[in-house]
Simulated scan of single mutants.
Amino acid sequence: MKLSHYLLLYCLGFILAWQSAPAQIHAAQEQLPLHLFTYDKTLPLAYHDSLMDTQQGVRIYQIAYASPLKGQVTGLLFVPPGPGPFPGILLQHGAPGSALAQTPRGLYLARHGAVVLATNAPFAQRGGDPLQFTLADSVDQVRYIINLQRAVDLLLRRPDIDTSRLGYVGRSYSGSMGVLLAGIERRIKTYVLAVADGGFVSHFSSTTALTGDQLSLEGPARKRWLAAQLPIEPIRFIHRTPGAGLLLQSARQDEAVAAADAEALHRAAPAGTLIKWYDAGHRLNAQAYLDQLAWFHQQLGTRAAGPGDEQGPAFPAPPSAQKRP
């Protein structure tokens, strides 16, 4: 059965329960649909790469591997000089965004002694709007998490990686998706989740959404979308994340994530989670990236920040301001 058909049946059941028995659905929401994120780990990776560039001693490869749900996952791999073994870090982009746009961050981390894998989210590969406000959004979300678990399989199979030292860093959209991944994936030791909220439902809530981000769907379409998204809303999974291995970074002047949503995520996080606020907007500031280096140095044994790191990654000039989930 196709993933979209499976999710449709699941969500129809969710809607019926919601309409007919509110008390039962409240109880059902306590039961996480972990089965949606399982996949056949014996499938071949069909991995291939090609050297694209070398910068600051870091080799940059274009990569692709097979998704367990058919098709390919594409991205970039950053390999530092030397034989290793190195920590492995999964680096994910926001929405809209792409793996290629993560090149400055990939170099920044790889220069400190980590193999960095940046993959494209499903919307980045298909093109178009990241969100369609249909059942396709929940299908994409499940597909993304399965593809990220497969990315962990890839890292674990590399001989130059210390399999006990895996990390994840994501911002905005991939910060929220990192919450979901951390609630499912047990092989990653530590997570850095920057300017994240609780997920799409939290982000587009009519009571907390920033101006222009309110959910515009009405009637049955609204009910279908919410019923599909609520079971896999990342904040519902955060209690399963590794508290002492979790760093949440938020911005006081964030123009894309409401402070109330960030604070709700913080409150739901397990004991031991480190929470840091910055006097910055959604793009954060140099101190946030220095804190990420310090965190991975502590958690994974990467090299500490040094001279030349004070300005953070060498990002290009920002485009004209635009909201993104």
Rank of each mutant, 00 (worst) to 15 (best):
L7R: 02
F14S: 07
A17P: 12
S20I: 15
A28I: 15
L34K: 09
K41T: 14
L43V: 08
D49H: 12
Q55P: 06
I60N: 00
K70I: 13
V73A: 01
T74G: 12
T74V: 12
L76F: 06
L77P: 02
P80S: 08
G84E: 04
P104A: 05
Y108I: 07
R111E: 05
A114G: 12
T119G: 04
D129T: 06
D129S: 15
Q132N: 07
F133V: 13
L135F: 10
V139M: 05
V152F: 03
D153K: 09
L156T: 14
L166T: 02
S172W: 11
S174T: 09
G178A: 09
V179Y: 05
K189G: 01
V201H: 02
D213F: 12
Q214E: 09
G245E: 00
Q249E: 13
Q249F: 07
S250I: 09
D254N: 06
A256N: 13
A259G: 11
A260Y: 02
E263Q: 15
A271W: 04
G272A: 08
L274H: 07
Y278V: 06
Y278E: 11
A280L: 08
G281D: 02
A294H: 05
H297T: 15
R303A: 15
R303H: 14
P319N: 03
P319M: 03
P325H: 06
